[in-house]
Design a protein around this nucleic acid. Structure first.
Lengths: 248, 248
DNA sequence: CGCAATTTTGACGTAGTTCAACACGTGTGG
DNA sequence: CCACACGTGTTGAACTACGTCAAAATTGCG
């Protein structure tokens, strides 16, 4: 499961063209200083950052486990889910390359949800105890950590805004496509395409819709020439129309 | 508007029986050290924390303004709202004594929503620039800040969970009552009572329901002996039933 | 007290759900 | 190689929870 760690150097991001470069990663501000600095943190830095590969459908962590690490996604996508007392899952979010997973467990030190790889993925794992120890010694690092946390909660906020607006199904779906486009377009290359790595079921679950409703809305969007659907790949043909529907 | 600041001493919390004591305030961990410490932060500490009174319906800050301060609520309650392009407001949350407002503007340094007092309120204002300056000098303070941020985003998370679960209107309302009870019961004294300082319109708006639907659900809860409604005061008569409905 | 704002109740319409059938891969085993 | 099961996605028809519109009841404020 574990590949070679990225000690004292940028993690190697070249083994797959979908790897996000470090300078686009939200973890960079705390990852690089730690791994390059020749400061009094020599002891800890050896093990702070570690590259981990995950196969499709494998858990990065599970709801209820104690917090050990936070993760930056290098490649691949993840879904975040919670158990409901009925036997099914509730999808509470998706995460894309360059984003952070697990930071929302810093309080109360327990992962509040599952993180599951939607495709073959690769993450940089950062041990929290060691991160906090390092950051105690390096004030700049702490400020970076504060910055990271505020940025990530901003992203989360943005994602939830769409949901709490709770307008029509069409507006939810339009907003979802635009949100994914904004966060994930770098990876696919083509600027007007969105790759929905998750299943329709997962999307519908996240949006609080039935899979049938989602399907109908997507079909309608295609009929009205807003998008072209090729399985999981969505091509956006009328960005303005989606924006208008999304109500942003 | 401004009362005497709370320099080098706990803010006085005695002028109103609804004042939350400092030891129950989320800001305590960064407020007390700054205001009591005789460290090299003498210059800034004079102006870091300041008590501010707000009258009903007044803005603590407005959406779009640059971030200057974050606030701890001493007494009173606030609603957080956003403008929609149509001329109305969307309520995105409520805040109670002991909780923090404005911290979610740390990135991107602009308040993303309005904060409006629902009743005569009083807050402790903490200047962000000075807080960050102080925290740079005092590592412990930074860790407290990290802790504060993670705790508050945990509270926000909990509040939104209810919404994204997006089950029935009944389950939303039940979960809302329980959430308020948990966060606000200290203030009212009586443990099985919840004081809804906000209007029904505000609650409905927040939950993504129509005021009529909310009203009907509350009436139904009363008819089924789950609660007793006395205007804004809700007495909980069957906690278990609400929990079951809320799906938690 | 009296008027306006807020809240509740009633009757009816609609968006989205539910249930059910079908279509399209993809993998498995005979 | 086909036959079949199974997961995933699409489409159709009936149902229902919530929204809309309207009016009555209650509360709050000058």
């Amino acid at each position: 499961m574990l590949t070679k760690g990225s000690i004292n150097s940028k993690p190697k991001c070249d083994k797959d063209h979908k790897f996000i470069p470090c300078h686009q990663c939200a973890m960079e501000s705390i990852c690089l200083p730690i791994n390059t600095q020749q400061q009094p943190i020599e002891l800890t830095q050896q093990y702070l950052t570690k590259r981990v590969d995950k196969t499709t459908n494998s858990y990065l962590f599970k709801q209820g486990q104690s917090l050990t690490s936070i993760y930056a996604i290098c490649t691949g996508t993840f879904k975040l889910t919670k158990h409901t007392q009925i036997n099914d899952e509730k999808v509470i979010g998706f995460k894309f390359p360059g984003e952070i997973i697990g930071h929302d467990a810093l309080h109360p030190k327990i992962y509040s949800h599952n993180a599951i790889a939607l495709d073959d993925a690769s993450v940089c794992e950062v041990n929290v105890a060691k991160l906090l120890a390092c950051s105690y010694a390096v004030p700049n690092l702490q400020l970076s950590l504060v910055d990271l946390l505020t940025r990530q909660s901003y992203i989360a906020q943005k994602q939830y805004e769409v949901l709490i607006a709770k307008s029509s199904a069409e507006s939810l779906v339009a907003a979802f496509i635009l949100n994914v486009k904004k966060r994930y377009s770098d990876v696919t290359g083509a600027k007007n395409q969105v790759l929905l790595t998750m299943s329709r079921d997962n999307i519908a679950n996240f949006l609080g819709l039935r899979r049938e409703t989602l399907s109908r809305v997507l079909s309608k969007f295609q009929k009205e020439k807003f998008i072209t659907i090729s399985n999981k790949l969505i091509q956006i043909d009328n960005l303005a129309a989606l924006f208008k529907l999304a109500n942003l």
